[in-house]
Design a protein around this nucleic acid. Sequence first.
DNA 1: CTGAAAGCGCTTACAG
DNA 2: CTGAAAGCGCTTACAG
Lengths: 333, 333
Amino acid sequence: MSDVAKVAGVSHQTVSRVVNGHPNVREETVARVRHAISELGYHPNSTARALVTRRTNVLGALAVDTTLFGPSQTLAGIEQAAREAGYFLSIVSADDPSPDGVAEAMDHLVQQSVEGCVAIAPQRELVHALAALPGPRPLVAVEGGEGAGFPVAGVDQEQGARDAVRHLLDLGHRTVHHISGRSDWLEAEARVHGWREELRAAGRTVTEPLPGDWSPRSGYELGRRLAELRAEGEEVTAVFVANDQMAVGVLKALHEAGLGVPGDVSVVGFDDIPEAAYLTPALTTVAQDFTRVGTAALELLLGALDAPSADAPADRTVPAVLRVRDSSAPPPA
Amino acid sequence: MSDVAKVAGVSHQTVSRVVNGHPNVREETVARVRHAISELGYHPNSTARALVTRRTNVLGALAVDTTLFGPSQTLAGIEQAAREAGYFLSIVSADDPSPDGVAEAMDHLVQQSVEGCVAIAPQRELVHALAALPGPRPLVAVEGGEGAGFPVAGVDQEQGARDAVRHLLDLGHRTVHHISGRSDWLEAEARVHGWREELRAAGRTVTEPLPGDWSPRSGYELGRRLAELRAEGEEVTAVFVANDQMAVGVLKALHEAGLGVPGDVSVVGFDDIPEAAYLTPALTTVAQDFTRVGTAALELLLGALDAPSADAPADRTVPAVLRVRDSSAPPPA
DNA sequence: CTGAAAGCGCTTACAG
DNA sequence: CTGAAAGCGCTTACAG
């Protein structure tokens, strides 16, 4: 900056003024300074600026298992929103949702003096660990479940699950089986809950959920189990699968068992991954708008940054939307 | 820090010494300082430190379309490797590979004073834009293609493609059709090249590649085209599809056309997405180890950081590995 | 083993 | 409209 000042023949604070667009600088001076800046290829040192303004302009993001579709999409949404708001985004992943793992990850963010943080926190354990930590504040959670002391942005999982079940019931199925996600995930729990409640509200039998782990493999195994149940005489005509990846496995298992979808069994997934519409049969599923969730989370964070004292910031819930395709139909006559 | 010094009854630079683990501090002093630190919940200000050491400890990552499996996996690999190396990772995405879009994204990184940058640069245009930019340096590219002036880490796309074709040829197919990826992507080009060369080396007919765009939808459309070609009398017994998502669409199109896989047509994909093994039939594909690519990219960057003068840093190539499953078999008799 | 001094590159009042 | 001064919170030689 002092080099620029020298070349332009002004003091370094005049340079600062033009860099920061302050008024009260003669036009000709501005021009001279700008010229010197581009001539020297000068870039303001963000570190020095941050030191004096006490604003780093960086936000932190805690990411989890990005091999999963949802988390990786959400992260992209957050990044985009952060950049639009003029912030830098520093990410750290927590492969390990234990208190220690989370503490280490958050410490990384704290060390960096982030101004705030959004945590993708789909697991119950992770949310608890986050709440217990001094960590960076303000903090907003994505898919985190309420009551942990920070605002939450997420998709209305329960509504999505209810819509899926209702769709199947409307088709004429007497009940709907469920293959659930990892039990430590809040989303898995919310979908189980929505599924169960919709069934109860309709006065239908509620079977035991088959516990999956989100992976195609577990979907496959549980799909086989479903076929066995059917072979044993249980009425299995429809299944709501907690995510599309498992649904892929279910489709395969059912096919191998000689069961037609949707002829014998209807299948509904969750997520609407890009492949969903091109599976055989095209998968009926519940779409989540992860980009909107990311944007909503960032709005919440920005709000907290603007008004740190505001108590009880409202959560943000994005609706889930059912997309009916070819894997669901009326039950066999 | 001065508060800590006061509480511990030492000067602030002694505090600095214990924080930075310098030798030559009396044990008892260290203990007193540590005590004061934890009592006050003190965290060193990374900004102030960065200002004086001239090291921000942050690395930048340029990400592209993270809805795609590969890029999002690679990013995760980079993040992990960066953290292990003690760096922070700031990400910025370039949805737009044009010079302007890239310039804006890289500028964001420059403003942040990153010490180096790894760019996921799968498109030719993006690589050129990167090379033309003053941008942050050192810079290493992932999947970027050589000759742009910075080291590159990536999977051996050509070898992967050749392996896929060889596998099909060994099965007895006379030739192999190809559904390619987005033509502006270097990986798409490398796979086309590998496919073509392997066919040529074996003296087989090289058909015109069918140009896809990576999406399941384009796979579906091109799969239909393939079925038409076959109906018109062309010998279509095997197809190498440039990624698994398109292969999903191809499988659907073939199925709808009444063509069996692998009975009538063998299909081989690329990527080995989690769903691949659970499609019907389980997809033979070429796996890429994105985590290793991310790690390799970071090693390259760290090397460049250590020895900025080292000329012609070697590129790093990770082998692709063919995974034979159920979608490939000998041609119909 | 420990402290006084200088300085990293900026911005923010304060003068003029 | 513009400059001299102080200070953000650290680290790095330099003394002692």
